[in-house]
Amino acid sequence: MSKENSVFSRVEEREVQGEVFQVTHRILQIPQEVYLQVLKEHEAPFSEMAAQEFVEQYLAWCNDTGGLIGMVRIDTRDDTVVLDAAIRYRINPLDRPSCQRE
């Protein structure tokens, strides 16, 4: 199928103007007892929602209020919980790659 006949040829992409975000990853290695103490009220402490809540509380403790938490991956190793949190921060406008037709 040629590009012109593809269903995607009907998709209109608009370029973002103004502020954009930079995504960073925060890797947190947490003793399991600390993780469970922070989330003691949570029904499912090893769920993605609980992991995100832990990251929110941790960032507040660090006084890092400028980020928006995205996906959080959780992994357990022995007596340690490892969280990989993707966090978006606003930065100055940047050019970004696009699939738009020129």
Rank of each mutant, 00 (worst) to 15 (best):
Y35M: 05
E53W: 04
V72Y: 01
L68H: 09
Q37L: 09
A51D: 04
K40R: 11
T76H: 01
E53I: 11
H25F: 00
A60C: 03
R77I: 13
R26P: 00
M71D: 13
M71Y: 08
L94Y: 05
V82Y: 01
E48C: 04
V23Y: 04
V7W: 10
R10T: 07
Q17H: 10
P31D: 06
L94C: 12
Q32H: 01
L68A: 10
Q32Y: 01
E33W: 03
D78K: 11
E102F: 06
Y58C: 00
A50I: 08
E48K: 14
D84G: 01
R26W: 06
E13M: 12
S98K: 12
A86N: 08
A44T: 15
E4R: 13
A60F: 04
R14M: 11
G18N: 05
R96I: 15
G18K: 02
P97A: 09
R88Q: 15
C62H: 02
I91R: 11
H42Y: 10
V16R: 12
M1Y: 03
E53S: 12
K3D: 10
Q32G: 01
T76P: 00
E33P: 00
N92K: 12
E41V: 12
P97D: 07
A50V: 07
I74Y: 00
V72W: 01
D78F: 08
D75L: 11
G67E: 03
E33L: 05
N63K: 14
I91D: 04
L68M: 12
R88C: 11
E41C: 10
V55P: 03
D79I: 07
D79C: 08
D79P: 03
D79T: 14
V7A: 14
E33N: 08
D95T: 15
H25A: 10
Q100M: 13
N92E: 13
L68W: 05
P97W: 07
Q22I: 09
S9T: 13
Q52M: 12
Q22N: 05
L39H: 02
E41R: 15
H25Q: 13
E12G: 07
P97G: 06
N92D: 11
R101F: 00
E48N: 13
T24G: 07
S98R: 13
E102K: 13
R14F: 13
S98E: 05
E4H: 09
Y89K: 08
I87H: 04
L83V: 07
A60G: 06
P93L: 02
G66A: 10
S9A: 15
E19H: 07
P97F: 09
D75W: 02
D95Q: 15
N63M: 09
V16T: 11
E53G: 06
I87G: 03
P97V: 10
V72F: 01
R10P: 00
H42E: 15
E41T: 15
E33M: 03
N63G: 06
S6M: 02
Q57H: 06
F54T: 05
P45A: 06
E15R: 15
